[in-house]
Amino acid sequence: MSEFTADNDWLHWCKAPVKPAFKLPDGAVDAHCHVFGPGHQFPFAPERKYTPCDASKEQLFALRDYLGFQRNVVVQATCHGSDNRAMLDVLLHSEGRAKGVATVKPTVTDEELHAMDFAGVRGVRFNFVKRLVDALPFDSLESIAERIKPLGWHIVIYFEAQDLAEYYDFFTALPVTVVVDHMGRPDVTKPVVGGEFDQFIRLLDDNPNFWSKVSCPERLSKAGPHDYEDVIPFARRVVESFPDRVLWGTDWPHPNMKSHMPDDGKLVDFIPHIATTQTLQQKLLVDNPMRLYWPELCK
């Protein structure tokens, strides 16, 4: 029994997803997912903005196999703060089939960074979504970016489209590979060509060290549960413009979802709508995540 009680409006992740009609290519990677707790073993952070239900490594591995993925990239969830033990536990029990993205504080030691590197961490995530953090992590990101550069790690940044102009110069000065979560959360009621989204495209176009995840249509769509058609033009534009720098992931178990809980099988069936050829699907799901997270296997 967890020592924590999930928020009253927390929606539990889908326990019976449909079997996807879309057959994933061999070696496919779910490049953005999480674990929560279990809370009795890996307590949630006191400063968390939400309290989720438990979602264990065993449940993640079962979903991976059911959907047809071969590997996972486990991203540290904000509800665990900078305590990376739950994420590291996944890596250590994955038989080499999972890599990680950590959250760290400026006080992290070089010894701790090297230990995480040995376990399979390949990046550090920084959250710039103002409603989810108490303070924006400009100073810590700058210092950590310099320290992880020798390890070959990358930075993952999470922000919302309306804030990109404010962050643009700071982000583009970072000295490492940068991966943007969920296309920078575009407002899909606005034009796919022009305005805010053109600025995001320019970010990737002018900065070849920038990558983008084209995940989480359930967070971006205004069309209603399990539809997400309004997200397709945005994700397709990114995939077709930058086929060698895009990633996709389920976002299981879907942190802090309040309106509806997506079916992970249906999310997989969304992929061929945004990556419309086998070549694009191979790059999105296999070649790109392997090159970023398992480069030793790509030689």
Score class of each variant (00 low, 15 high):
179 V>N: 06
263 D>E: 02
103 T>L: 13
7 D>L: 10
170 F>W: 11
124 V>M: 02
159 F>S: 09
276 T>Q: 15
121 V>Q: 03
137 P>L: 03
124 V>S: 00
199 Q>P: 03
10 W>L: 11
18 V>H: 11
240 E>Y: 10
87 M>C: 15
77 A>K: 02
280 L>F: 07
180 V>P: 01
91 L>H: 05
19 K>P: 02
185 R>A: 15
273 H>Q: 14
67 L>G: 00
203 L>T: 10
25 P>S: 06
175 P>Q: 09
163 D>K: 04
81 G>K: 10
164 L>G: 03
142 E>A: 15
151 L>G: 11
208 P>D: 11
167 Y>C: 14
93 H>Q: 08
123 G>T: 01
138 F>K: 04
285 L>N: 01
74 V>N: 05
268 V>M: 02
117 D>E: 12
15 K>Q: 09
262 P>M: 04
194 G>T: 09
133 V>Y: 09
134 D>S: 15
191 P>V: 10
150 P>V: 08
108 V>Q: 04
222 K>H: 14
115 A>C: 07
44 F>Y: 15
252 W>A: 05
294 W>Y: 15
279 T>E: 15
128 F>T: 02
56 S>M: 14
203 L>M: 09
104 V>M: 10
109 T>C: 10
68 G>E: 03
77 A>W: 01
236 R>G: 02
249 G>D: 00
62 A>F: 08
241 S>C: 13
293 Y>T: 05
293 Y>F: 14
193 V>Y: 14
262 P>C: 04
237 R>Q: 15
290 M>T: 12
262 P>D: 01
118 F>K: 15
63 L>D: 05
127 N>P: 05
107 T>M: 07
91 L>N: 01
87 M>Y: 02
179 V>A: 11
12 H>F: 08
190 K>L: 15
188 V>I: 06
270 F>T: 00
195 G>V: 11
270 F>H: 04
156 V>P: 00
57 K>P: 05
245 R>M: 03
195 G>D: 06
54 D>G: 08
250 T>S: 15
58 E>P: 00
288 N>T: 13
78 T>M: 08
179 V>K: 02
127 N>T: 08
60 L>F: 05
142 E>P: 05
251 D>L: 03
89 D>W: 07
28 A>V: 06
120 G>P: 04
75 V>Y: 07
60 L>R: 10
90 V>R: 08
235 A>S: 14
192 V>K: 13
214 V>Y: 02
30 D>P: 10
273 H>G: 06
58 E>T: 06
130 K>Y: 06
183 M>V: 11
267 L>C: 02
11 L>E: 04
201 I>K: 07
139 D>L: 03
115 A>M: 13
29 V>Q: 01
4 F>H: 15
12 H>D: 15
247 L>T: 02
29 V>P: 01
151 L>P: 12
130 K>R: 13
145 A>Q: 14
4 F>R: 12
188 V>P: 07
214 V>G: 01
187 D>G: 07
80 H>Y: 05
291 R>W: 08
49 K>R: 14
239 V>C: 00
70 Q>N: 12
217 P>S: 03
89 D>F: 08
94 S>K: 12
80 H>P: 08
155 I>V: 14
296 E>T: 06
88 L>G: 09
244 D>C: 06
41 Q>P: 03
58 E>Q: 08
214 V>P: 01
153 W>T: 04
273 H>K: 15
183 M>I: 10
246 V>H: 00
203 L>W: 10
96 G>A: 12
100 G>P: 07
289 P>S: 10
246 V>N: 01
